[in-house]
Amino acid sequence: MSDLSVPAYLFVIDHRGGRGLADPEVLETAVREAAAAAGADILTAEFALRPDASGPAGVAWLRNGRITAQCWAELEYAQFDLIIPGEGAAQRAADQLARSLLPDWAKVTAVPLNHLSHLPPD
């Protein structure tokens, strides 16, 4: 069971423009670098071009989370979901994705996952 005292966030990241939006190998390398920047261990990763050839997609399963990626090359758009527990870990991964892929514009939305203040009192 995970330690709920450790902060965890879902980061939803939007990138416009940048490099590697049509190349699954570039995308996988960027995700692997992001996981390393976060100090996360990758259990398995799989990236491929979608059947309609609109762009690559993939997932890296981490020991305690995941990074998913989807790109639409014709729209020059990429979207990432990161769940990486640990203080600042997801932010370090998001920063590394931006350094690797060099988007023209990026937006990061962080949603706390183990925020327990919504629970009713005992």
Rank of each mutant, 00 (worst) to 15 (best):
S2R: 15
D3L: 04
L4G: 08
L4T: 05
P7Y: 06
P7G: 07
A8P: 04
A8T: 15
Y9D: 10
Y9R: 10
Y9F: 13
L10W: 09
V12K: 07
V12T: 13
I13V: 15
D14M: 01
H15T: 05
G17I: 11
G18N: 09
G20Y: 03
G20S: 01
L21P: 09
L21I: 10
L21C: 06
P24V: 11
P24R: 12
P24F: 12
E25C: 03
V26Q: 14
L27D: 01
L27C: 04
A30S: 12
V31Y: 07
R32Y: 03
E33G: 03
A36H: 12
A38R: 07
A38W: 12
G39V: 12
A40M: 08
D41Q: 15
L43C: 04
T44L: 04
A45L: 04
A45C: 11
E46W: 05
F47S: 07
A48N: 11
A48Y: 14
L49M: 15
L49G: 06
D52R: 02
A53W: 05
S54K: 02
G55P: 00
G55K: 00
P56V: 09
P56T: 05
A57Y: 10
G58S: 01
V59H: 09
W61F: 13
W61D: 03
R63D: 06
R63M: 02
N64C: 02
N64A: 13
T68I: 13
T68N: 11
A69M: 10
A69R: 07
A73Y: 01
A73C: 09
A73S: 10
E74C: 00
E76Y: 04
E76Q: 14
Y77H: 12
A78D: 02
Q79E: 12
I84P: 00
G86D: 03
E87F: 06
G88K: 03
G88E: 04
G88V: 02
G88C: 00
A90R: 02
Q91G: 06
R92T: 02
A94R: 00
D95E: 15
D95S: 07
A98Y: 00
L101G: 06
L101Y: 04
L102A: 09
D104N: 13
V108M: 01
A110V: 02
A110I: 02
H115T: 12
L116D: 08
H118V: 13
L119H: 09
L119D: 01
P120E: 07
P120F: 03
P121W: 01
D122I: 03
